[in-house]
Simulated assay, not measured.
Amino acid sequence: MGIKLFGVSLPLLVIFSVAVISTAADEKGKPLITKTCRGTEFPDVCTSTLESDSRSLKADLKGLSRIALELIAAKSKEAAGVAAPLLQNSTGYVSWSERTTCFDGYNSSADRIKGDGLQYFDEGKYEKAYQTVDILNNETIYCNSFGIPQLAQTNKFMSRFVSVVKTILHLLF
Rank of each mutant, 00 (worst) to 15 (best):
F121D: 02
G124V: 04
C143I: 03
S90P: 05
Y126N: 01
S159F: 13
D116H: 14
R99G: 04
T34K: 15
E139R: 08
A25M: 10
Y126W: 09
T167R: 13
N144F: 06
V82L: 12
S56N: 13
T34Q: 12
I33G: 02
Q153D: 15
T154S: 13
Y130C: 00
K77H: 09
Y126H: 04
A59N: 06
L50N: 04
Y130M: 07
M1P: 03
L151N: 02
Q88R: 10
L5P: 00
A68I: 08
E98Q: 15
G39M: 08
A80I: 10
Y93R: 11
P149S: 09
T47W: 06
L171Q: 07
D26L: 10
Y106I: 03
V8R: 15
G115F: 08
L169M: 06
R160I: 00
A74F: 11
T132Y: 05
S65C: 01
V165S: 03
L12S: 13
V94A: 12
A152E: 15
T23W: 15
E41I: 10
A83I: 06
F173D: 11
P85G: 11
V94P: 00
K77P: 01
F157K: 01
R99M: 08
V165W: 04
R160M: 12
K35R: 14
K156G: 00
A79D: 02
V20W: 03
E139M: 09
I33R: 03
I135E: 09
C46L: 03
F161L: 04
A25D: 11
P11F: 11
M1W: 14
M1K: 13
V8M: 12
P43M: 03
D60I: 09
A110V: 06
V133S: 01
Q131W: 04
K114L: 12
V14M: 13
K156Y: 03
K128L: 13
G81M: 06
S22Q: 13
L71E: 11
S90Y: 05
A74T: 15
K30G: 04
C46F: 06
E78L: 13
E139V: 06
A59T: 02
T154K: 04
F16T: 13
A110E: 08
V162P: 02
S54H: 12
F6H: 09
V162S: 01
T40A: 02
G115I: 07
L69P: 02
S163Y: 01
S97F: 15
G124E: 08
V14F: 09
L61N: 00
A83L: 02
T132K: 08
K125L: 11
T49I: 05
P11H: 09
I135Y: 09
F157P: 00
P11I: 12
L86K: 01
D44C: 00
F161V: 08
Y106P: 00
T23A: 09
A25V: 05
F42T: 07
G81Y: 07
Q131F: 08
L169Y: 06
A79G: 08
W96A: 14
L50G: 02
I3L: 15
I3P: 01
A25W: 11
N144P: 00
F16N: 11
G105T: 05
P85H: 10
V82G: 02
D122K: 10
Q153P: 00
S9K: 15
T154W: 03
L12R: 12
G2N: 14
Y142S: 07
I168N: 01
S163I: 08
S76Y: 06
V82K: 11
E51S: 14
R99D: 05
S56V: 05
C143Y: 01
A19L: 15
